[in-house]
Design a protein around this nucleic acid. Structure first.
Lengths: 400, 400
DNA sequence: CTAGTTTGTTGAGCGCCCCAACTAATTGCA
DNA sequence: TGCAATTAGTTGGGGCGCTCAACAAACTAG
């Protein structure tokens, strides 16, 4: 009920986490706290195994006693990021500093398997990560699972169209499948986690309001508002692919008509560019359509260029609606859209300028995402890491 | 830098503001603070002129010493809500408790006048309010101005299409026109303030994520996320009327095509229902179209009913896009849409069910707004009042 | 080697919250 | 009427945790 110490511990810890190793003196300067207070806070954090004295010297050849930097303790808490996607599973493990300590990727056709089997396999991969020597610590462990579908407020996977799953309690099943369940396990939509990843270490760094558009098999989005992921009232925010573009357009799998995903999704784009969409199914890598179409566009194939222009205009209409509603600082194009952004941004900007009421007064930039196919796992660890930093601050006061 | 006292003062003050008069004992129970702490906090707030002992006895015939309730001091700080609209000006003044102490409304064709003259007139109305006896207090005074246009992050009115104004520094001009400028003066979009009003005392009470759709001459919206007004990166969020419904539809005044406002705005609705839109200009009251069309619909005029159905479907498409993106708890229909909602909700829900991906899993309700044409002024005072409560907590610590 | 400079630590002081004891004001019951 | 019982509010002691100032530590410059 009176978490002032906890608050300040968190302040110092997060500062070190976000800005890197630094001395007590600079921490005092940056946080506005007193030198002696910072010393005491840092001592507690070291006792709790969250920080350690750093060999890195922060010293631009100045006079005076050399500062003693502290950094995140790599032996401290660690974090798991898991991903279930249509045709693969992935697991990453990092320490508090965000250093990736373990990484695995397994191709697996998850549409063909039952949820239970898939989650059992994922649990095996997670346990491999936990076997790593660095995982022997007594610290709490957080895990986040990225899934390609709608996750409701209780963490249950309500529906994953491209996986063919409905109402799968992923968190519960995974907890049961794990020998030693983590301190906290959460499940989150893939595009949402992609947005978090871009926010923390990608094209969204430093931004506070943006939308990450994830072009996978469908088109999803993660919405970041005021520097935080926005999930919506039931956890279903960001279904950008089902914005209506043409009310009487072709029917979409969702039951609507003329959805963005139907008019500008991967299948349509490939078809417009002259490829048979079914080629995709033939075991290609996930990054296939983006890289291939970019090659084709670079080679100047007119049909590809026309397809990209058309899809760009369609995307632009949707992005203009989004901009009218939310006025974000930027829209990030992720997934297969990222490598195609050189050809997409021009038509998108054109639509934005004619259709966004605030026109050029609002500078909504359209940028390629930076993290490619790793965005979702990266976001999973990043979210877990952020939560760990938040909660870890409560640790030293409890340990007293 | 160590606002723990301030925080607790605010906690107590806001509790009383939101939940009404109550005793120190119940405040202690509700805030989790100690009885003695609450006593001390309340004493400070009384000293600062923010609270006073209340004659109201909170006593459900129980044994023991009767509690001494405290309530917001009506002699405390006061708040102005101003509104500049197309054909009228309005000023409300309330005390901290939200009790309206002064109210004025002046019909005035603001399109025909220069911004400077309009603001001078508004300043005169504001000064009338300040002449009131209760305004003689030493307390800070906050004012908020509602305007029907885009307000940028600096509080400048960038563009007000229906007023014909562009780049009017309303805050600066009003400050100059006022003899004794307020402690803090802010300018905010009309629909945004309508959303705040509905949040505080209308259909949005208790909700944390909703969108208020304001049907005035244009269609705007105020977006409330996590219980707070969301303004967007440049302050231009909520331009719901310019969502694209039909990319190749009729041109809209904004430069786009097939905007919601063009396809389902007031003019179109009246035309579809068989009225000449120009009749509106002929000096009718602002609530004219809603009340009149509702009468006509109640009378069973088939052309009106068909028009409402068509507009409802169009609105529903836009609301489905919004719901896909933000997953709000509710959408409130305000302005002239409120009295029409009995005929609009059915087609809107129909579109929501077919077009929102999460379908009936997400319960996005569509409700009529409750505050009618007063929403914007009410929101203006409510926003000022909320800010006053926030800042007033800093007062007692400064006064020490 | 000493003066100057910057970092980190130590102990006094203090704001502010909690706790417990106490006073105040009422009801219930003998 | 009067004395428990009960609930509200106040008062003073204690302690957590922050700030401040003085000091010790570790280095550079000349």
């Amino acid at each position: 009920m009176k978490p002032v110490r906890e608050h300040n511990l968190g302040l110092v810890l997060r500062r070190v986490a976000e800005e890197g190793p630094r001395s007590r003196a600079t921490l005092a300067l940056e946080t506005g706290l007193n030198k002696s207070t910072v010393s005491s806070l840092v001592a507690d954090l070291i006792d709790a195994g969250l920080l350690r004295d750093s060999p890195v010297e922060e010293r631009p050849t100045r006079v005076g006693r050399p500062p003693q930097s502290v950094e995140l303790d790599p032996e401290g808490p660690f974090v798991l990021g898991l991903e279930i996607n249509v045709d693969y599973l992935a697991v990453w493990a990092t320490d508090l500093a965000g250093e990736v300590r373990h990484r695995s990727f397994v191709a697996n056709d998850n549409r063909a398997a039952t949820p239970k089997d898939v989650i059992a396999l994922l649990a095996r991969l997670a346990e491999d990560a936990l076997e790593q020597p660095f995982a022997g610590s007594r610290h709490p462990m957080l895990a986040t699972v990225a899934v390609p579908g709608l996750v409701d407020a209780d963490g249950e996977l309500a529906v994953a169209p491209n996986l063919g799953w409905t109402d799968v309690p992923v968190a519960r099943l995974l907890n049961e499948a794990l020998e030693d369940p983590p301190y906290c396990l959460r499940v989150e939509n893939e595009a949402n986690l992609g947005a978090v990843a871009e926010l923390v270490e990608g094209a969204g760094r430093g931004l506070s309001d943006f939308v990450y558009v994830s072009g996978e098999i469908g088109i999803g989005a993660g919405v970041v508002l005021r520097g935080e992921l926005f999930r919506g009232a039931s956890g279903f925010a960001g279904e950008f692919g089902h914005l209506t573009i043409d009310p009487f357009g072709p029917p979409c799998g969702c039951g609507g008509r003329g959805c963005l995903e139907r008019l500008a999704g991967q299948d349509t784009l490939l078809r417009l560019a002259g490829w048979d969409a079914r080629m995709r199914r033939a075991g290609a890598r996930p990054e296939w359509p983006g890289a291939m179409l970019a090659d084709s566009a670079r080679a100047g194939h007119s049909r590809t260029l026309a397809a990209l222009s058309q899809v760009g205009h369609t995307l632009g209409i949707a992005i203009a609606s989004l901009a009218n509603l939310l006025d974000p600082e930027a829209v990030l194009l992720g997934g297969y859209l990222a490598p195609l952004s050189p050809w997409l941004t021009v038509p998108i900007y054109a639509e934005l300028e004619t259709r966004a009421l605030a026109g050029r007064r609002m500078r909504c930039r359209v940028l390629p995402a930076r993290l490619g196919g790793e965005a979702a796992v990266r976001g999973a660890v990043a979210l877990g890491r952020r939560a760990a930093l938040e909660e870890a601050a409560a640790l030293p006061v409890a340990a007293r």
